[in-house]
């Protein structure tokens, strides 16, 4: 039932992001560039979409992560009264389970939002269907979801000790920092999570970017454990 509660709390926000994503990508598909049927031109155009996704989705995800965890301030610090958090905390549920359920639900919701990207490409770029298989698109979606986990966990972590506006600001800064760090020349491009969601995604390489996915999952695990530590030691 914690999943149900989480869904009730986040459904409108998820719906909003879904509508935004559909509208945004639909607008792009209606441009004259999208009508170019030459494979190189199409691929170049489509290559820009994952790049856009790589830029925008981390930001959206960090915001989603915040909403997933902190709605009704269950686990979040807040000035004054804690609202219904005392009711939640009085349930016979460990703080690990509370956090894991919220984070798990948020990741599933994020994966749902991310599924729009491959669906969009499949729907609006019919010319690419001869060059891309369904499994390429599926691999692309899996890659997006796994690479997004690092950013989602960043949002989860920040939401455990920061209030709304600060969480959003630091989330954006965190994503920009990731971007800057992973673009450094001394780091191999194979670890760049942003590239893995864009030009190095399975759409173009037809293979999983294992290193980036591993880095992302590792980072997500570390951030989740840090969030758990904060939540378990917090007093309410």
């Amino acid at each position: 039932m914690l999943w149900y509660k989480g869904w009730l709390e986040t459904r409108y926000r998820i719906l909003f992001f879904l509508l935004c994503a559909v509208w945004g990508l639909g607008s792009v598909a209606s441009t004259p560039y999208a009508a170019n049927r030459a494979r190189p031109a199409l691929l170049a155009f489509v290559a820009g979409i994952p790049g856009l996704i790589a830029l925008c989705y981390p930001l959206i995800l960090t915001v989603l992560a915040g909403s997933g965890i902190k709605t009704e301030s269950d686990l979040q610090p807040r000035k004054g009264l804690h609202g219904s958090s005392y009711f939640t905390l009085s349930l016979p549920v460990s703080r690990f389970r509370l956090l894991a359920t919220r984070a798990g639900l948020g990741m599933l919701e994020a994966a749902g939002v991310l599924a729009i990207a491959p669906c969009y490409i499949w729907t609006f770029f019919s010319a690419l269907r001869m060059h891309l298989t369904g499994s390429d698109l599926f691999a692309y979606w899996v890659t997006l979801s796994i690479c997004a986990s690092a950013f989602y966990s960043l949002g989860v972590f920040l939401s455990t000790f920061l209030d709304d506006i600060w969480q959003y600001l630091t989330s954006v800064l965190g994503v920009v920092f990731f971007w800057w760090l992973l673009s450094r020349p001394f780091l191999p491009t194979s670890v760049n999570i942003f590239r893995a969601m864009g030009e190095s995604s399975p759409l173009f390489t037809h293979t999983f970017p294992w290193a980036s996915m591993g880095i992302s999952l590792g980072t997500a695990a570390i951030l989740f454990l840090a969030a758990l530590k904060v939540v378990q030691t917090r007093e309410y």
Binding site: E9, H82, S84, F87, S90
Partner: peptide, 12 residues
């Protein structure tokens, strides 16, 4: 348990 605040989930 009944808390001092008497707050429950408003959306339920």
């Amino acid at each position: 348990f009944v808390s001092e605040e008497k707050d429950l989930y408003p959306y339920m």
